[in-house]
Nucleic acid binder design. Sequence first.
DNA 1: TACTATACTTGATCTAAGTCAACGAATTTA
DNA 2: TAAATTCGTTGACTTAGATCAAGTATAGTA
Lengths: 189, 189
Amino acid sequence: MYQELIAFLNNKGIENVETQQQICSCFTLQKAKSKTILVDYNQTANEYYFVNKGCIRLFTLNKEGQESSRYFAFEGNFVAALPSFIDQKPAEEFMQTIEKCELLKISRTSFYHLVQTIPEFAKIYTEILELGFIVAQKRIYGFQGFDALEKVQWIIKNQPQLLLRVSNKMVASYLGIAPSTLSRIKAKL
Amino acid sequence: MYQELIAFLNNKGIENVETQQQICSCFTLQKAKSKTILVDYNQTANEYYFVNKGCIRLFTLNKEGQESSRYFAFEGNFVAALPSFIDQKPAEEFMQTIEKCELLKISRTSFYHLVQTIPEFAKIYTEILELGFIVAQKRIYGFQGFDALEKVQWIIKNQPQLLLRVSNKMVASYLGIAPSTLSRIKAKL
DNA sequence: TACTATACTTGATCTAAGTCAACGAATTTA
DNA sequence: TAAATTCGTTGACTTAGATCAAGTATAGTA
């Protein structure tokens, strides 16, 4: 049950078995079928998830009801509706499984307790934030002024697994282009 | 010289005078005229800046030579070419003063030393990252699927000071629209 | 396995916003 | 303070990509 998480911790330099044990004991297993809503639009996020198996998506709806996706978390990654988790305000986004999932869940209270008591865990949190920030900045630069073809080339270079695991419609909503445009571009590549 | 920084620290809950002293002593004053390049495209960022007075911009150039701005730091804010500062890779962006500036500068070594030795300072760094992440996420959602008018309304609501302090051209490059489009929209509001 | 619903593809059309250009205003620099 | 750049505005034109629609394929459900 915890082998993926332990591998993650080892990878991040937390190799002490008791510390690993202490961290793992804060997580509970949750199985969910595809398309389960884990955080609803008006809900405040109180859980951090670690993906053992499957895939989770973060997305919102604009006022015309169109989806805009911002993040896909695959196996071995942490994911939360972080702005809401941090500020404890309504998420204004959805967190949803898009495959049958096996997840490890930790409450916000436990999460911050780990951050405060285990310096190495605080370091992991900092790294998550740093990485999230860097990816977001690259995406802002990357998508600004890119045309549709360049966006698709960007995704092929930077997140090829998205095209393999995620539907065209969702990839298009991540790139900010129409599904038909993505379809046409893929046909020409 | 340090009054703005001390106000910032007080505001963030660092009220102990010796701690404030210790932090301030790591910063040196740098005056710079407008349009000074503080980090060049191929340079690796080794300084964190605190803006006492003036304004700093982060931007890059796409392959057609067009600017894309991602951040403007006014008085009382910290700013760095963070992806480069964190990963110690070439910035692939420019950090530039866009007004006559009075800046406080801290080296990367000193910065991380403060993070490691002063827990409250580590907390500030975490907050900077959290806030940066949240702002970036909102911008990604906000700009995805917004038309030009909605982008302008967004900036009026969320960062009105940009329109007052920054040139139309730079605001347009921040919003990902042509300067002429911004001009036309402003004329109609 | 069959039925239903959703997703993908492709063509035809439309429109928001980009580009180009020209002129006046504002800002820099010598 | 005068000359030289750069910036902002506006009009005419162009185009990338959105929307709409219809047919086909795929996947979820009973």
